[in-house]
Design a protein around this nucleic acid. Structure first.
Length: 559
RNA sequence: GGGCCUGUAGCCUAGCCUGGAAGGGCGUCUGGCUUCUAACCAGAAGAUCCAGGGUUCGAAUCCCUGCAGGCCCGCCA
């Protein structure tokens, strides 16, 4: 909340409590962010001890508080005594709080955070099933940065194991598809190799031999598989770039084998009290760890002594904590158990543990998205469609075709991001293309349009934003706009603390919506309160710009 | 068999942590562009907050028991 507003509310609250103390009233709860007004005294609990109806108590309270400093008026709804503050007195100071260049931003923090997101296996183009990952990951990184943390993002490239060996084999031995985009072209190689792997014993043994070489640390094999993954990834990276969700760095799993850190992890884990050997393979005994399921053994080596996926992930996390103080992983809900195992191992090794943000998969209407069943929507195709739909919406707008192409790209990608971010990650999400293409209401274009309106007013005004002077009474919609703007810092804080990125689009919609009400009620240019209103437009524009930027959407000047 | 997550109008969703007035959006119906951008605004209709029990002055929110859906339980990744 803006500091001034917070102080005013605190002062009113403490005066109310003092009045309660000095009278027959019990101490009644006060809602600091009520549905209506600025504060609300909840009068239900007083009814019994005062032997009155709750409504009567509310009436008494309204008389009691009406002379308090900063209280302009009260009104009663049921047993809620709602209080409206004297905004005419507060507005200048609240405005000055919001005008601060760092308004909403968190104070710079010492902690550095590595956000690992996406990390999809480099076997082919991204599909929509896991589309929440880069979008949530990128947005949460931006949010944490805005809140003052040092943040980097990283993509973990799983370039060892069977799939990676299959990709490398496929690229080497088969002809790719005809697409110009590398991942779409090479996925054909992978497909053929996968089929041969199932059908042809010779191919299978070749791939498995390669796999063993890789895990055993054979330099040539590791180089080959890393190179293949990079090639596939070069196409996939283009998709991330288009989504505005490129990672800052890419970390190859193969490097962990190559530099010996996986071996070191295995050696250390073998010293754990809960480590047990079974026919040459080693596991941690989870019986006392209360993570249940049929299997209570967490194997970290095969019987040939080589590592498993989670073993290498342990090495990766130790590496992360050498570079950063904190680690946050954005993972699909299918990784929950794996992440528990990882944490147990890290604890055994005395290491810090990562925070996790899990999301539920995206489904298609009618069922699960599945590569095997051919029910797949590619992220690239989705981006094409939504950008195309946005382009068509621009047909009546006066703008050069080049500008329209650029703008529809922003609108389309923004809509996709907004649509995905606005739902809590743990909730199931059925991806309905018509909903995604319907871009009005609580959506990116609504916010972008509001931003363009703000820009348009400032453009038309055409001068420096003036000093704030208030020449007339405030309108309700001006106060409401300031109320929403006042919430921004708390919203950022709570969203960042809880990793609740969906709160940002929620706020964006509130702010845009409130701005549109202001726009309806208040003529800006030429009004007696022109200076105040220009300033309000300017401040709401900055907050809206920041909020959109947090979820990776560029706010346009026109649309 | 076990663990975790989800269940809010025809559809999508916020609120759940920290109990107090069920918010938005889509769709439907009605009205509003000669006025700083109508991708906008106003109004209407639409909710057994999955079910049942408990705690409480008060439960969508906390606790218990069910039901339904998702994810997981490999010397795969």
């Amino acid at each position: 909340m803006s500091r001034t507003l917070k102080e005013a509310k605190d002062s009113v609250i403490s005066e109310i409590n003092e009045l309660f103390n000095n009278s027959d009233f019990p101490k009644l709860p006060i809602d600091e962010n009520p549905i209506q007004g600025d504060l609300s005294v909840i009068c239900f609990p007083g009814a019994r001890s005062l032997n009155k109806s709750a409504e009567e108590v509310a009436y008494d309270v309204s008389l009691l508080v009406s002379n308090i400093n900063f209280v302009k008026s009260t009104f009663i709804v049921k047993a809620f005594c709602n209080i409206i503050l004297d905004w005419d007195a507060l507005v200048i100071n609240v405005y000055n709080d919001i005008k601060d260049i760092n308004y909403g931003r968190g104070i710079p923090k010492k902690e550095s955070i590595l956000v690992e997101h996406t990390s999809a296996n480099a076997t082919g183009p991204f599909h929509m099933g896991r589309a929440r990952n880069p979008i949530i990951g990128d947005s949460i990184s931006r949010l944490l940065k805005y809140d003052g943390y040092n943040v980097s993002t990283e993509y973990y490239v799983n370039d060892t194991g069977r799939q990676a060996a299959t990709v490398a084999f496929g690229i080497k031995n088969y002809k790719g598809g005809s697409s110009e985009k590398e991942d779409h072209r090479l996925v054909e190689c992978y497909r053929q190799a996968s089929e041969e792997l199932k059908a042809n014993v010779e191919v299978k043994s070749k791939i498995y031999e390669k796999m063993e070489l890789i895990e055993g640390g054979d330099k040539e094999a590791l180089d080959e598989v890393k190179k293949a993954a990079k090639l596939m990834l070069s196409g996939m990276q283009y998709s991330l770039k288009r989504l505005n969700a490129e990672a800052d760095s890419y970390f190859h799993e193969s490097d962990l084998i190559q530099d010996g850190s996986v071996t070191r992890v295995i050696d250390s884990l073998k010293k754990s009290d809960i480590c047990v050997e079974e026919e040459g393979a080693f596991y941690l005994d989870l019986s006392d760890k209360n993570i249940a399921g049929r299997n209570q053994k967490f194997f970290f080596t095969r019987n040939n002594g080589l590592s498993l996926y989670t073993t290498r992930d342990i090495a990766y996390h130790l590496n992360k904590f050498e570079r950063y103080s904190n680690s946050l992983n954005v993972l699909g809900e299918d990784h929950k158990l794996q992440s528990n195992l990882l944490n147990i191992a890290l604890e055994e090794l005395g290491s810090s543990k990562p925070d996790n943000l899990f999301y539920s998969f995206v489904n298609l209407p009618g069922g699960k998205m599945s590569t095997r069943a051919g029910r797949v929507v590619y992220l690239d195709d989705m981006m094409d469609q939504i950008v195309q739909a946005s382009f068509e919406r621009l047909k009546d707008v006066e703008m050069s075709p080049e500008q329209k192409i650029l703008l529809s790209e922003k609108i389309g990608i923004g809509s996709l991001r907004y649509n995905i971010i606005k739902v809590q990650p743990e909730k199931g999400f059925t991806f309905n293309i018509d909903d995604a293409l319907s871009i009005q209401g609580d959506s990116a274009p609504f916010a972008m349009y509001s931003h363009a309106r703000m820009s348009s007013i400032l453009r038309k005004y055409g001068r420096e934003v003036p000093e704030l002077v208030i020449d007339g009474n405030l309108f309700e919609s001006e106060i409401n706009l300031m109320r929403v703007m006042s919430k921004w810092p708390d919203l950022v804080r709570s969203s960042s603390d809880k990793l609740a990125i969906h709160k940002i689009p929620n706020y964006i919609h509130q702010l845009s919506s409130q701005f549109n009400n202001f726009y309806r009620d208040c003529k800006v240019i030429g009004d007696v309160n022109e200076s105040l209103r220009i300033n309000l437009v300017c401040l709401s524009k900055r907050i809206l710009f920041d909020a959109l930027d947090i979820i990776g959407i560029e706010a346009p000047e026109r649309m």
